[in-house]
Design a binder for these strands. Structure first.
Lengths: 345, 345
DNA sequence: CTGTTAGCGCCTTCAC
DNA sequence: GTGAAGGCGCTAACAG
């Protein structure tokens, strides 16, 4: 009854209503690029909500060449770590006034490339990329001159900007903590060899072991996917061995959770029979039984740094940011003096 | 060196190269709306990849009025249930040839509305909405004539299309299963009263209890947020009581996981001292210790139905789809005859 | 300070 | 079967 057409109000409607030109409407809506007289501005503002005007983002994107959207590509959004990271990323992106396109590559290299191209077609302003492996083909983005930051599964030789924790130092610290407990027989569940993330965490563990001059039984070195399923499978194999290690470093949190499930299956008590430490540090490890000691990634920092990199003006240099981690100690790696139940909020 | 400019190739470049008009290029790119001669088509196709042409999605959106994007609004993507659902939704959306805009409202009603408006500005083709509460303000979407489907946290009186499981029947079945075990003292951890989802699950439990003529000790009815933290808090309160129930129905999976953590804290054995059943059924309950019996939501079906609703031509009717659930039995609710360790893949 | 006017890249009706 | 041309809604010079 308000006489509104089914089609949205445009700048022209506002201009007509306010008795100005469309340019002025733009100026007030965008606060520039030219100044507007106080009185005119008020008239325009009044007209805007009298007409119920809301700018069309698509038209703006086309005209300005800036789409106002960033894209996020992840191997699997249902993976708690990626989900937690996505949460932080979305917030950082929103703070930038942009929207976020979500692409779930479902661990498929092919789909990953499709998504990248799809996003590029939409004039995306920047891409946050977590690859299926460490050798993603991001040439299309570079060619298009679109900012791209690789997260988590990084290859430092790629000549692409990236943000990740110091995986080597993190796993080194975790392993050393285990060693500090007095454990000497320490195993590892590694991630897939095609991920540098996995290799680095492996390396940290190896370094700590070598430095402490601890022997490693090859049967206690298992390799599995970075998933709960993988962790459980590794556990099942491990627990079928005649002799168990005293401790295990699970290369990621999902594996640790799976390992715990296997332990329960086999009646292996944690930490009494087996101490566990892991990497990532989402809520999953806090609420596991027992709560798991873990290297914690600073997701919030990672997200902020990554989005800031995207926001840089073009013609920037490649930067590979490495974040610090923290160690969160919980019951899974054994008793700590004067630290009863350290898992409150 | 290829002489490529920094700007992308457009339809016009293709047309020139192929010696046709831009319209023809459109016809072949979109397979319509007009037919094109075999020979011409080939020339155009050749020109397209000679020039390296890729259509501009933004321009297409503006000209056609169809943005090619759906929006998803969730209270918190780091919540495993929403993440698992998002995974399925992304797949369904991709199958439709669209991209997905992710909005994380961070449990904030205000941010939720902001996101909705932001999406609407971008001429979104449809919105998948999981509200912070059961009374979301989606009028803006309806006014704009944009398709919208509410998921999970549904209000059946709202006159808006929705997709969700039958929460009442699910919790009724879960509770009945507990009763079938012979438990008579059965408690519940309810979700927040402002969510119909929570109320319905409550109702299912109540109905089953009443029907079995079982008394309910009011101290065994706890209300908490749908989070791990909430579940743990409820557990801590429960386990401080002089007498425990024999079983508890945790209204969602996150609560159940938190409850398990509290049980470990208090030395309460599950299922020996306390049987647990819950609702949702993501991988979380499979990998918990012990694995948790749960009502499983058909996420894949929910996603497909929801996206199909969005894809309907305008002028459709409101449909409120209710999905069936399945019951997944695991060790947490007690021993089941002839069902040893039912948690393989 | 304000108005005019080309585009942005593509879709689509309408002629030929 | 093909081409010409008018938008889609907005930005950003360029004039006044």
């Amino acid at each position: 009854m308000t006489g509104k057409k089914s089609t949205r109000a445009t700048r022209e409607d506002v201009a007509r209503q306010a008795g100005t030109s469309v340019a002025v409407v733009s100026y007030v809506v965008n606060g520039g690029p030219r100044p507007v007289a106080e009185a005119t501005r008020d008239r325009v503002l009044a007209a805007i909500d009298s007409v119920g005007y809301s700018p069309n983002g698509i038209a703006k994107a086309l005209a300005s060449g800036v789409s106002g959207a960033y894209g996020l590509i992840v191997p699997d959004i249902s993976n708690p770590f990626f989900a937690a990271l996505a949460h932080e990323l979305e917030e950082a992106v929103a703070a930038e006034g942009k929207v976020l396109l979500l692409g779930d590559s479902a661990e498929s290299k092919e789909r990953e490339e499709t998504l990248l191209k799809l996003f590029l077609q939409r004039q995306i302003d920047g891409i946050l990329f977590i690859g299926v492996d460490s050798k993603p083909d991001v040439r299309a983005a570079l060619r298009a001159g679109v900012q791209l930051v690789i997260l988590d599964r990084v290859d430092n030789d790629a000549g692409v900007s990236s943000v990740a924790v110091d995986n080597i130092a993190g796993s080194y610290a975790a392993t050393n903590h285990l060693i500090g407990h007095g454990y000497t027989r320490i195993g590892i569940i590694s991630g897939p060899g095609n991920l540098y993330t996995a290799r680095d965490r492996n390396l940290g563990w190896e370094t700590a072991m070598a430095q402490a001059q601890l022997e490693v039984d090859p049967r206690w070195r298992l390799e599995e996917n970075f998933s709960r399923h993988g962790g459980r499978e590794a556990g099942r194999r491990l627990f079928s061995l005649p002799q168990l290690p005293e401790a295990v470093f699970a290369s990621n949190e999902q594996q640790a959770v799976g390992l715990l499930a296997a332990a329960a299956e086999f009646g292996v008590r944690v930490p009494e029979d087996l101490a566990i430490m892991t990497f990532d540090g989402t809520d999953d490890s806090e609420y596991a039984t027992p709560a798991i000691s873990t290297v914690v990634q600073p997701l919030n920092e990672i997200a902020r740094v990554a989005v800031n990199l995207l926001a840089r003006p073009p013609g920037h240099e490649v930067v590979q940011h490495e974040c610090d981690f923290t160690l969160r100690l919980r019951p899974s790696c054994g008793p700590h003096a004067g630290q009863p139940v350290p898992d409150h909020n």
